[in-house]
Design a protein around this nucleic acid. Structure first.
Length: 639
RNA sequence: GCCCUUGUAGCUCAGCUGGUAGAGCAAUUGAUUUGUAAUCAAUAGGUCCGCGGUUCGAAUCCGUGCGGGGGCACCA
């Protein structure tokens, strides 16, 4: 006589054991039709699971995240089924639902081609049309392993071994085809719907370990309705339009080339943007008490050995041998250099906290497969700083950094920031007691910031724990940018010390911090966030002056000069094209402000402006224009 | 680094089963002097990523190297 409690608190009684489907039927006809899976006392179950005892039940449909996940999970099973039918001998690994879709990892000699994906998709649709019934069986552990060994499904055998001892080993059937799976699954393949699309084939290591065999992973996207699928595909298309590599080329900001993979050739406009950001940050950091320095790019191997980089980070370092056979390394980080600056002269506790900053260009030999436009490069400029302080200053300094980061992100249009706290990694330098101390003070700062945070276990730097600042962009993507890292190791290794109040020598704590992280990467993110339409104050070319005809060229030149004198970038378009052409041309180039000069403007010593994405015309007297836009030519927090 | 995929004019791309390249835009020149998203015409422009091979003949087929893209691993 199970008594079922529903999410709204209602209770239903049944005379004997009951399935989820029967409960759904009792609730409503539409739920009966739409039900996919359910949870019984919080545990996800198949709808045909027999409920014997009192419990609370929630039925999920495609509208619930749990239901959508179940659809994706079912879809990937059907994909595996189609693959094994079409390509006999293909072995299975794992096939989970993921964000926006699903994948399945296969082991097969021959590669899958894009053409194969189409065939698989067609077969999947046939299977769904057949509306094959789903059935769950519990198999005995050893029998399962023997069964899969006999089939040569070695990954399934491994998976059985990974199932905790007290869990059942369940096998799901879709018609005749079956797969080892935890479930739950939908009642039949017909409930999946056909709102999916196989998107790509990719290599993936078994269990995510590069020492293992590489499997073939087929990715797909799956949704509850045609509209959701279309929306998703449209979202992908939108994101592609914002791709900074595409916009960087179109807007003539930078390029890459074979001779130096992963290094940026900045063009005039891209570099202007770069410099604007640096100048902006210089001013902010100056107010926040930072001292800017500059340290060498090439440093003796001995220093890197002493700092621990040679051993822990050597694989990623560029090295260089000089004609006198000395070995130097091109810096992958600025920290050792900054400690050398700190070490000059005797430091007292009164000097702390000492905040040393540098727009330092670093080189890191990244694996070729990791390179990605501006977002992952081999040579980049860090807005780096190292704060030398005492242990009891750690928390407040971390908070200062946090506030500075939030202000800067906000100025650049990012209001949504979350924190990630990462603690000690497996490969590290320093005693565990030191790590205990560092982690405790940093975590205190994280909590004091009152921002939302998550914990990244074992993801810290080799010399200390860190906070990462993650910002969310205009289309909802997260980017990790800034970071603060507590370091109780490096200063000691490189003999940094200060004289404390009591006259004794102490080793300072060093905080590593970056605001944008990498200027290159941050510009990539900015381009994508704004889809290339930068706010006026950072736009690399802020105005283009367009004379209506040859007669007004002189006036246009005069206006452009005045604008440049006011500190706003400007050029005159003297090409032999009509106004319409030029407006189109510069609008596509995403120039924020077009300035039109014709007879009317010359006569009244004025300009007519047209803002990007607006067709309104605003006429104003030249001087008031200059005054107005000079005032706007600043970061929001400085206006 | 690994798997798949890809590399043709400044850009975006076409070029079927092998017969030494083509369009649009951009550029240049000329005409036009234009009031808010493409004026017309002419001209010029290519080691078809590099190297090697198969072939009478290779942009096209094969091998290899380099670069790009999508993933995996990596992201100190």
């Amino acid at each position: 006589m199970p008594k079922i409690t529903l999410p709204d608190g209602k209770k239903l009684s049944f005379p004997k054991e009951v399935t989820g489907l029967e409960i759904a039927e009792k609730i409503s006809k539409s739920l009966f039709k739409q039900a996919l899976i359910m949870s019984v006392d919080g545990e996800l179950k198949d709808l045909y699971f027999q409920i014997k005892d009192d419990c609370s039940v929630k039925i999920f449909t495609a509208k619930d995240p749990e239901g959508l996940d179940a659809i994706r999970h079912d879809t990937t099973h059907i994909m595996a089924m189609a693959v094994q039918e079409l390509f006999p001998g293909t072995k299975l690994a794992i096939g989970p639902a993921i964000k926006d879709g699903f994948y399945y990892d296969f082991s097969r000699e021959e590669p899958f081609t894009p053409n194969d994906l189409e065939k698989i998709e067609i077969r999947m649709k046939e299977i769904i049309e057949k509306d094959e019934k789903t059935r769950r069986e519990v198999w005995e552990r050893e029998k399962t392993k023997k069964h899969y060994s006999a089939l040569g499904e070695k990954y399934k055998v491994e998976l059985v071994d990974m199932i905790p001892e007290d869990n059942e080993v369940s096998i799901y059937y879709h018609g005749e085809w079956y797969d080892l799976c935890r479930g739950p699954h939908l009642l039949s393949t017909g409930r999946i719907g056909k709102y999916f699309k196989l998107t790509k084939v990719a290599g993936a290591y078994w269990r995510g370990d590069s020492k293992n065999e590489m499997l073939q992973r087929i990715y797909g996207t799956g949704w509850a309705s045609q509209k959701d699928l279309d929306d998703y595909l449209k979202r992908i298309e939108e994101a592609e339009k914002r791709d900074h590599r595409k916009l960087g080329k179109e807007m003539d900001l930078f390029h890459f080339r074979e001779e130096s993979p992963g290094s940026v050739f900045w063009h005039e406009k891209g570099w202007a943007l770069f410099q604007k950001l640096i100048n902006y940050m210089r001013a902010k950091q100056d107010l926040a008490g930072y001292k800017e320095v500059n340290t060498p790019e090439v440093l003796d191997r001995l220093l890197w050995e002493k700092s621990g980089h040679w051993e822990k980070y050597g694989e990623n370092m560029y090295t260089s041998e000089t004609p006198d056979e000395k070995v130097f390394a091109i810096k992958p980080m600025n920290c050792p250099g900054h400690i050398q600056v700190f070490n000059q002269g005797l430091k007292s506790y009164r000097d702390l906290p000492l905040r040393i900053t540098e727009f330092g260009k670093v080189h890191r030999y990244e694996p070729s497969g990791a390179l990605h436009g501006l977002l992952r490069v081999r040579a980049f400029t860090q807005d780096d700083a190292h704060i030398f302080c005492s242990e009891d200053q750690i928390t407040s300094e971390c908070l200062n950094v946090t506030n500075l980061i939030l202000e800067i992100y906000k100025d650049l249009g990012f209001e949504n920031v979350i924190l990630k706290y990462a603690d000690r990694p497996a490969v590290r330098v320093g005693e565990d007691e030191i790590w205990d101390k560092a982690e405790a003070s940093l975590l205190k700062a994280v909590k004091a910031s009152k921002l939302e945070y998550s914990i990244n276990k074992g993801e810290g730097a080799f010399y200390g724990p860190k906070i990462e600042f993650v910002l969310r962009d205009a289309i909802g993507r997260d980017w990790q940018c800034g970071t603060v890292q507590v370091d109780l190791n490096l200063p000691g290794r490189l003999d940094a010390s200060y004289v404390d109040k009591d006259g004794t020598k102490k080793v300072p704590v060093m905080l590593h911090r970056a605001l944008f992280g990498s200027l290159e990467r941050f510009i990539g993110i900015l381009i994508e966030n704004y889809a290339g339409k930068f706010p006026f104050w950072i736009s690399p070319l802020q105005t283009v002056v367009i004379p209506i005809s040859e007669d007004f060229e002189e006036y246009a030149k005069k206006v452009s000069t005045k604008i440049r004198e006011a500190g706003i970038t400007s050029m005159v378009d003297l090409k032999n094209h009509n106004l319409n052409y030029k407006i189109r041309d510069h609008s596509l180039a995403k120039i924020p402000l077009l300035i039109i000069c014709g007879k009317k403007e010359v006569d009244s010593n004025s300009v007519t402006i047209r803002r990007l994405d607006s067709n309104k015309q605003e006429n104003m007297e030249l001087n008031s224009f200059l005054k107005k836009f000079s005032a706007l030519n600043k970061a929001p927090s400085n206006i």
